[in-house]
Design a protein around this nucleic acid. Structure first.
Lengths: 131, 131
DNA sequence: ATTGACCCTATAGTATACTTTAGGGTTTAT
DNA sequence: ATAAACCCTAAAGTATACTATAGGGTCAAT
């Protein structure tokens, strides 16, 4: 799969794909005779995951670590993987909690703010977070 | 409240507080006679919100917009606020969804990967996302 | 065979969000 | 009164994550 096709099917820029490769987020693709990159199909999933993880505030460095999770004799032991995934699970729960707080504040604003008879007393996000 | 106290109680750097002020995320604080900034107490909540929103992937620009939500005659109408909060609520739900996907993949890895009799077939995050 | 749509590398430039430095004044405790 | 801890501005520097540019080769269709 050529880089243009890959980039398009994930909805990112070709340059960005090359950048991710340079940063070690994509394993080095095979090359065709002419030197063009030939990506395996699962690069799509890899890039989709990167996109997803970026959206929720993970850095490329963190995403690289997430993608690197695997139990292999010479790399990571079970216990290492368990420890690492537990840390990441905690982080994710933190994020979900924060998002839920912001969500409920926005919901308050959305539903109460402009009800007509309601006073505009929940119309800032900080006020809505408090109540 | 002096900047050092404020920064410390939120757990961020003094310089960062000044930077946020310069970017319009904090309203300009009053000055004491000596020129020192005198922050209102609610700056703490403002900064805590900024911290929270940054953690889940919002940019300073977006955070500024969230902090600016209010219904006022000369600024934003009810409908504008409703529209804006709805867009943000959708974004937040997207983020929560992505996080939940990553979470369940990590949970799979965490619980299945090293069970002993289990094959290491869910030991990469991409594999875990699929199943 | 030539045009347009691809691909390549290498390097420079940009946006965002800080972080550090320089150079200086203020306050608090001893 | 002096040192340590605090505050100020302005400007430069850094890290991250792209994004664009230059200069060139490849491929598919006309």
């Amino acid at each position: 799969m050529k880089i243009g096709h890959l980039a398009k099917s994930v909805g990112i820029d070709i340059q960005t794909v090359r950048y991710y490769e340079s940063q070690g987020l994509l394993t080095e693709p095979n090359r065709m005779e002419n030197g063009y990159r030939d990506f395996p199909v699962d690069s799509i999933k890899r890039l989709q995951f990167i996109k997803k993880a970026k959206l929720v505030g993970f850095t490329l460095k963190e995403i690289k670590e997430l993608l690197a999770i695997q139990v292999t004799k010479d790399k990571h032991t079970c216990q290492e993987v368990k420890n690492f995934t537990q840390i990441k699970l905690d982080e994710i729960n933190q994020k979900i909690k924060k998002l839920t707080e912001i969500e409920s504040a926005l919901k308050k604003i959305h539903s109460l703010c402009c009800g007509g008879s309601e006073k505009a007393s929940h119309c800032s996000i900080l006020q809505a977070l408090e109540s």
